[in-house]
Design a protein around this nucleic acid. Structure first.
Length: 559
DNA sequence: CGTCTTTGACCGGCGC
DNA sequence: GCGCCGGTCAAAGACG
């Protein structure tokens, strides 16, 4: 990753901080439970701040200025403000309007005041007055537009929040179903991209929702393929075999690819749990004499992540050893098999395969549960472990396409269902912290489809400070530090030292600078949310906020 | 020299 | 029972 990219991430981060302050007031990180509530409460006010954030996201996501204008109008103004200081006179006013608007103000009088004041800051020339008037009228029009958009956004957010809570309830109920009553496994599809996976979209109800929502959310976009980053999550039941097949099929879904083709960050997560692992599974994993025996248990937990990635594999923070490669039927691209080498007996494996339709998309499927402390940077497989263990840990992780990877953070103790989204937003310097436009029903047998696509980030209020320590500040996560076996740091470039408690901008920038990292983080987040059982919502603070290893070791007996 | 990747062979599950 | 296919093993080679 280039230094320029990193720098931009830092800048965005700062901006975001400001935005958060403007819009959401002061949220304290780590208060996840109240946070959930807060989401609903601030949703209206957040609509504005959201958009600001969103712009930053879009820009970062595509790394081009053009992308920026795909954001909301407010965002565009903001961007101009940033990019061309020369035009700061008018833009400052616009910026101010943004703030006023978010605060519920944004009246015409205020607007005039702003605009007139701006030139005054310059030279105060009378000739500029006429120009200012023109500008004023233009801005008034923009304001009207913005207001309309805001209304739409608020409606969307309202609905989203309602849906979310409804869904959350259903999800909890669903996850509490006894394993033996669940012959089918649950799949979770998460996609970061312009659109939801085709398979997921196929669900009628979800489709409806998306159809209804997308226009409103994406209305600001000037180009279709660039809806920026979207996040969609679907949950459904299916047979294990089907899932395996879908690994290929989904990847090949034309509509996905087409959309993905333009979205920088894309990830699809697929989490499967045939049934909760027996309590002995981990023990077996730990003692793995025969991996075969363990595999059966391990396979109960599968997480598939699709990330647009140029490298042969995405760096998810763990160490892997390739032990095989095979050309799977239906996809000419060979599938590589990796084994976790963090611990000698770790049963976790992953399969990496390029998407047939879009070679730039890497489909990584993690399988199994780690039997060792995980590097905080571990991505989906970490989540797998967590999910399998039923622990409510969420982590942000990184996955770079090549070397360096910074990872995400120790979960806020909360680990509430919402936390991932919050995390998502908190870390989405570049990626859309979309308003979780969740739709669909958990209806029996049916597919649940959660989609968070688009632009506004209903959850943007989450303080960026959550990212301050994407890794446990506590060196005792030594699992991570030592996980490389002393060979290689999990975070490529600088080794462990580099990633220590560096303040927010650094790591956040790193993550933000790599869409893949973020995608993987999201995947992990969602995976965790889905993977954990209902119990997870209780958020066993001590454990979940501890390190991964602890989580793994504290498997609920009933699991 | 140790570690990792490559690659062909082998094994087990599944469908016909 | 047979063949296909996915997954794994293990020897050989590559690399630092």
């Amino acid at each position: 990753m280039s230094s320029s990219k990193r720098k931009r991430a830092d800048i965005d981060l700062e901006r975001r901080d400001d935005d958060v302050d403007d819009g959401s007031g002061d949220h304290q990180p780590g208060e996840a439970a109240p946070r959930v509530q807060k989401e609903g409460q601030i949703k209206e006010g957040e609509a504005q701040a959201k958009e600001v954030v969103e712009v930053v996201v879009d820009r970062g996501g595509d790394g081009s200025k053009e992308e920026i204008k795909c954001g909301t109008q407010q965002g565009g103004v903001m961007e101009e403000d940033k990019q061309s200081p020369a035009a700061s006179a008018g833009n400052d006013g616009a910026d101010g309007i943004d703030d006023e608007e978010s605060g519920g103000g944004g009246t015409r009088a205020e607007e005039e005041h702003m605009v007139e004041a701006a030139p005054g800051d310059g030279d105060g020339d009378h000739d500029h007055t006429a120009m200012a008037q023109d500008e004023l009228s233009t801005m008034q029009e923009e304001m009207e537009k913005m207001k309309e958009e805001n209304k739409m956004l608020r409606r969307v957010v309202d609905r989203t929040v309602r849906d979310y809570y409804e869904l959350q309830t259903k999800l909890a109920a669903y996850q509490k179903q006894p394993a033996d009553q669940e012959p089918k496994e649950t799949e979770v599809f998460l996609s970061l991209g312009g659109t939801a996976p085709a398979a997921a979209v196929a669900e009628a109800k979800s489709k409806e929702e998306q159809a209804a929502l997308r226009p409103s959310v994406g209305s600001d976009d000037t180009d279709d393929g660039r809806e920026g980053l979207g996040l969609s999550l679907s949950l459904r039941t299916s047979s294990y075999e089907d899932e395996a097949r879908r690994d290929v099929v989904d990847g090949g879904a034309p509509d996905i690819v087409s959309d993905v083709g333009k979205a920088r960050g894309y990830a699809l997560l697929e989490s499967s749990r045939m049934s909760p692992p027996a309590s002995g599974d981990l023990a077996a994993a730990g003692g793995i004499g025969s991996q075969q025996g363990v595999n059966a248990a391990n396979r109960k937990t599968r997480v598939s992540v699709r990330v647009r990635c140029q490298g042969p594999t995405m760096n998810d923070g763990c160490q892997w050893r390739k032990y095989g490669q095979k050309v799977a039927k239906g996809n000419p691209c060979p599938r590589a098999y990796y084994r976790c080498t963090v611990a000698p007996a770790c049963p976790v494996r992953k399969q990496v395969q390029r998407c047939q339709e879009d070679m730039s998309i890497l489909i990584t499927t993690y399988e199994g549960t780690h039997n060792h402390p995980l590097p905080v940077g571990a991505t989906a497989m970490a989540s797998t472990a967590t999910a399998g263990a039923g622990a409510a840990t969420f982590t942000l992780l990184s996955s770079t396409s090549s070397d360096a990877a910074v990872s995400g953070g120790p979960p806020p103790a909360s680990s509430s269902y919402l936390s991932p989204y919050l995390q998502l937003n908190s870390s989405s310097q570049y990626h859309s912290s979309a308003s979780p436009l969740m739709s669909g029903n958990m209806g029996g047998g049916g597919a649940q489809h959660l989609s968070m696509f688009g632009h506004s980030s209903a959850l943007a209020s989450q303080p960026a400070t959550l990212l301050k320590y994407p890794w446990p500040p506590n060196p005792s996560h030594g699992g991570a530090a030592g996980l490389g076996g002393g060979k290689r740091p999990f975070w490529g470039t600088g080794g462990v030292d580099d990633v220590r408690p560096t303040p927010l901008p650094d790591n956040a920038g790193t993550m933000a600078s790599d869409p893949n990292q973020f995608s993987a983080a999201i995947a992990t987040a969602i995976s965790n949310v889905i993977g954990k059982d209902g119990q997870a919502t209780r958020s066993k603070e001590g454990e979940s906020s501890n390190k991964w290893g602890v989580v793994v070791e504290s498997l609920p007996p009933h699991e």
